Amino acid sequence: MDSGRRGRDLRIGDPERERAMRLLGEHFSAGRLELAEYDERCRQAAGARFGSELDELFDDLPGPRPVELAPATTRPTPSAGAIALTVGAIAAGIALVVVARQIGVLLLIPMLAIIWFTWRRR
């Protein structure tokens, strides 16, 4: 193990390596890297184990940089209001089906679509 590493230097995974190589490709496309440099840096990025190893590849390049190496994106937790609205809409949909039968089913479909698109947008 490398004892000279900073204590907070975290290991990286394939998504971080791929992002670094994609950013190197942008620098190559902009003419900041020659083909040999690009190839060598991509090899180093593919073999990197720690975030600091990726940062070193971008020391002499302007942004974009893989500074914000973060774990895979996660969805934000829904607010209490969104949960209450969804539960209320589901209860109203069930009431429509029970009370209005056939028309309730027809009205339920657009209601479910609205709920679906509201949750997907978040």
Score class of each variant (00 low, 15 high):
119 W>R: 05
116 W>C: 02
10 L>A: 13
85 L>E: 12
12 I>D: 03
119 W>C: 00
54 L>G: 01
7 G>K: 07
12 I>S: 04
115 I>K: 01
64 P>N: 05
52 S>Q: 00
18 E>G: 03
48 A>R: 02
90 I>F: 12
97 V>M: 12
27 H>E: 03
9 D>H: 04
87 V>D: 12
106 L>Y: 05
18 E>S: 04
93 G>C: 12
73 T>F: 09
53 E>C: 10
120 R>Y: 00
1 M>L: 09
11 R>W: 08
51 G>D: 09
38 Y>M: 02
40 E>A: 15
21 M>Y: 02
107 L>W: 14
46 A>L: 05
25 G>F: 13
71 P>V: 04
95 A>V: 10
36 A>T: 13
40 E>M: 10
33 L>I: 01
98 V>S: 08
51 G>L: 07
39 D>N: 15
86 T>A: 12
91 A>E: 07
37 E>T: 02
21 M>K: 15
103 I>R: 08
35 L>E: 14
117 F>Q: 12
20 A>P: 09
47 G>T: 06
67 V>N: 13
81 G>A: 12
45 A>V: 08
9 D>K: 09
95 A>E: 00
78 P>L: 14
42 C>A: 08
28 F>Y: 15
106 L>D: 03
86 T>R: 00
49 R>A: 04
104 G>L: 01
14 D>T: 13
29 S>R: 11
35 L>S: 15
73 T>S: 06
122 R>I: 01
81 G>D: 13
3 S>P: 12
116 W>R: 10
93 G>I: 09
27 H>G: 03
15 P>Q: 07
114 I>T: 08
101 R>L: 01
2 D>I: 07
38 Y>K: 09
87 V>S: 05
95 A>H: 01
29 S>H: 06
39 D>V: 07
100 A>E: 14
53 E>P: 04
12 I>W: 02
33 L>R: 11
104 G>K: 05
9 D>V: 06
121 R>V: 00
113 A>F: 15
103 I>L: 11
121 R>A: 10
109 I>Y: 00
20 A>R: 09
14 D>Q: 12
26 E>W: 09
93 G>M: 15
3 S>Y: 15
34 E>H: 02
42 C>E: 14
18 E>W: 02
110 P>I: 02
54 L>R: 06
115 I>Q: 07
45 A>H: 09
65 R>W: 02
57 L>E: 01
35 L>W: 12
28 F>A: 10
48 A>Y: 10
71 P>Q: 05
75 R>K: 14
23 L>Q: 07
42 C>L: 08
25 G>Q: 03
63 G>N: 11
24 L>A: 03
77 T>A: 13
74 T>V: 12
56 E>G: 06
